[in-house]
Design a protein around this nucleic acid. Structure first.
Length: 656
DNA sequence: TGGGTTAGCGCG
DNA sequence: AAAGCGCGCTAACCCA
């Protein structure tokens, strides 16, 4: 049963009645919008569906004005239920309405489930799972690009049902969250819907011309590296057929892992996989068995462009010259296709900006944000471009503050070890991190390299050891194994002439654990908890869950142990960032400063030039307060030491 | 032809 | 045989 509302007087009467109910404790309505587009700048509002706990209304927005909804939707005493409210927030904001007091049934279900495997969270999925009702999504899809203003009985009923289901879903969710101790993180998640929606709505200014200028040099690098590989395979007799086209000739599609592996086998390089990690593993084996070289040639003999030949020659990671050229080619290709064409294609026609989606529980197992279309959490650093011999260009520098504004970048510097130490309440580790230099300590005590001092730690060869110590400590926070850490360290320390066996790796982890037994206990306890209880929690009670029935497979169990060690750390880090986002949202002038990107432990804000100083201060304050609230046992030290102080940087672009 | 998966690589 | 955590995107590949 629902009421189809087309007349202004009728609509006002209904909205007034809802407003009158707001004196009730925790009075709630559910809200949904049907629009012609998912882009808030283009979307035409077709229907607004509202359900109270007892009645369903479908408002025909082709006949009614959205302004009359302002009072109800902004009323802080009325809870607004919705599925994926980030979207509805943007739609209403575009019409001058800022939703208040939201309960998002999609985010809440993600929070409750929080598992490491793929699960559906569309309204249809949640309705099916919780109420056993199957929904036909095709009716909803019919609203997109709708040109007329006639609504069928079926469409109206569908809209009304959608909102009516949200009430029983809400009741289930609240009961479950209270039982699971999730209320604190739930409040946090709901409070960042608005800043998340506004981050998407605001978008990021990208200098189109600057980014476009990068196409040609990247294409040249790719063309030359590709030609070099073709020539090599042909010269070494690996080519069956050579195809000639207007762009030159080729014997293999260098994009195809399968074809490349076949070609490599023909020139004597028999390798199972081509990713860097496996290649490094394979190369170590080759060295051990003293196989004779199959790549006895120079890039300078086959590549005319000296600079590119040199860049490939210097490209780090792997030794074998076929594989190195291939790695170089793949690196250049991903940058061109994903980040240059990919971002250019996403510049919005209406705003001239790029509007990525930020999914506040995209990393649904851990609590971190994810970013899509495009992903703004994996923009290459300038170092990557330098390695490709393209250091004259920068993708990050194409992301600019718009006219009269500034970009502010602030991150929690190396917060994960602080979190690990604080969660473990390991006074010794905290002491080393906060008042000393834990990596230098690990160099001396675990790696047994004694020449390092606080003064020379940034100079070679001491820096090598410090980097290795850093890798070991972070590896431990990720639940690394002896075998893995030995391989990683072998690559890092190869130039120093050191070799580490998997057994040595085990010994390093054991030594690290023996120096910080309290932290070791925390990590091992969480590994056990993941397996025995099927969940672990972060500092504010955020849970990550595992399906314990899979643990009869010991490899699944081992994976859960590693994940269990890391989940509390990564979850707490996400909680900290989100708390900072909320505090900044509460305190900053939203018309003068807005978050535009969030990369896990980094918050990027675009602010009016004259408001920059104040925005920096507010951001620093919000982030440092977040550290204190998430890690109360280090609150006393916050702001005093490198690991617990935040130092926002101001620029006209996203440079880091 | 179209959807789902895999391999590889970008970031924290 | 499987072995560091968390993500998303592109091209190739696989199958219907």
């Amino acid at each position: 049963m629902y009421t189809y509302v087309t007349k202004k007087m009728q609509a006002l009467a209904i909205l007034n009645a809802i407003e009158d109910s707001s004196w009730m404790d925790a009075y709630r309505i559910s809200v949904d919008t049907e629009t012609t587009s998912l882009n808030p700048y283009e979307a035409r509002l077709l229907l607004i569906s509202i359900s109270t706990p007892s009645d369903n209304y479908v408002f025909d927005m082709t006949k009614l004005s959205v302004a009359m909804f302002k009072q109800v939707l902004e009323n802080p005493h009325i809870i607004k239920l919705g599925h994926n409210l980030t979207y509805d927030y943007k739609i209403f904001y575009h019409h001058g309405i800022a939703l208040q007091n939201m309960h998002d049934t999609m985010i809440t279900d993600r929070l409750i489930h929080a598992v490491g495997y793929k699960m559906g969270f569309s309204l249809a999925d949640v309705t099916k799972r919780r109420l056993g009702i199957t929904r036909d999504k095709s009716i909803r899809d019919g609203f997109i690009n709708k040109t007329n203003s006639f609504f069928s009985e079926e469409e109206l009923l569908y809209a009304a049902e959608d909102t009516s289901y949200l009430h029983p879903i809400y009741e289930q969710q609240m009961t479950e969250m209270k039982k699971l101790g999730l209320m604190r993180v739930y409040q946090l998640e709901m409070s960042i819907i608005a800043p998340t929606a506004m981050m998407e709505y605001t978008g990021v200014y990208v200098n189109k011309d600057l980014l476009s200028q990068m196409k040609h040099p990247f294409e040249e690098h790719i063309r030359i590296a590709n030609k070099a590989l073709q020539d090599l395979f042909i010269a070494h007799g690996a080519a069956d057929t050579i195809v000639f086209s207007k762009d030159g000739y080729y014997c293999v599609n260098t994009n195809s892992t399968q074809q490349i592996k076949d070609m490599l086998a023909r020139v004597g390089v028999n390798i199972p996989t081509l990713n860097v990690k496996d290649v490094q593993r394979w190369e170590l084996e080759q060295k051990k068995s003293k196989k004779k070289k199959t790549d006895d040639f120079s890039y300078f003999d086959i590549i005319d462009d000296e600079e590119i030949a040199n860049a490939i020659d210097q490209y780090p990671g792997v030794e074998n010259k076929y594989l190195r050229a291939l790695g170089f080619l793949k690196g250049a290709r991903i940058l061109l296709n994903t980040f240059i064409y990919g971002i250019l294609d996403r510049i919005d026609n209406t705003t001239g900006r790029v509007h990525p989606s930020f999914n506040s529980l995209g990393a649904m197992a851990t609590g971190r944000y994810s970013s899509t279309r495009p992903n703004f959490q994996n923009i290459p650093t300038d170092k990557k471009l330098q390695l490709l011999g393209l250091g004259a260009y920068s993708i990050r520098n194409c992301i600019e503050a718009s006219q009269g504004k500034r970009i502010i970048i602030a991150d929690f510097a190396s917060i994960e070890l602080v979190i690990l130490a604080a969660l473990s309440n390991d006074q010794h580790l905290l002491e080393e991190i906060l008042r000393g230099d834990v990596h230098t300590f690990v160099v001396r005590e675990v790696l047994n390299y004694k020449d390092i001092t606080p003064q020379n730690k940034k100079k070679e060869p001491h820096k090598f050891w410090r980097d290795a110590a850093k890798t070991l400590s972070y590896g431990i926070a990720y639940g690394t194994t002896g075998r893995n850490i030995s391989e990683t360290l072998n690559v890092m320390l190869a130039s120093q002439g050191y070799k580490i066996t998997p057994q040595d790796g085990d010994a390093l982890i054991a030594k690290w654990y023996s120096l910080f037994p309290t932290t070791a206990n925390y990590l091992n306890a969480n590994a056990r908890k993941a397996v025995l209880d099927g969940y672990v929690t972060d500092a504010w009670g955020r849970r990550r869950n595992w399906d314990r029935s899979t643990f009869i497979d010991k490899w699944k169990r081992f994976a859960a142990e590693r994940e269990g060690k890391n989940a509390g750390i990564q979850g707490s880090s996400a909680t900290m960032t989100k708390r900072a986002i909320q505090l900044f949202w509460e305190r900053a002038d939203k018309t003068k400063a807005r978050m535009i990107i969030c990369v896990h432990d980094e918050i990027v804000v675009e602010a009016d030039e004259e408001y920059t100083e104040q925005a920096c201060a507010l951001l620093k304050e919000a982030m440092e307060q977040a550290i204190k609230e998430v890690l109360p046992n280090v609150a006393h030290d916050v702001g005093k030491y490198e690991g617990t102080s935040v130092d926002p940087k101001v620029s006209v672009r996203y440079d880091k």
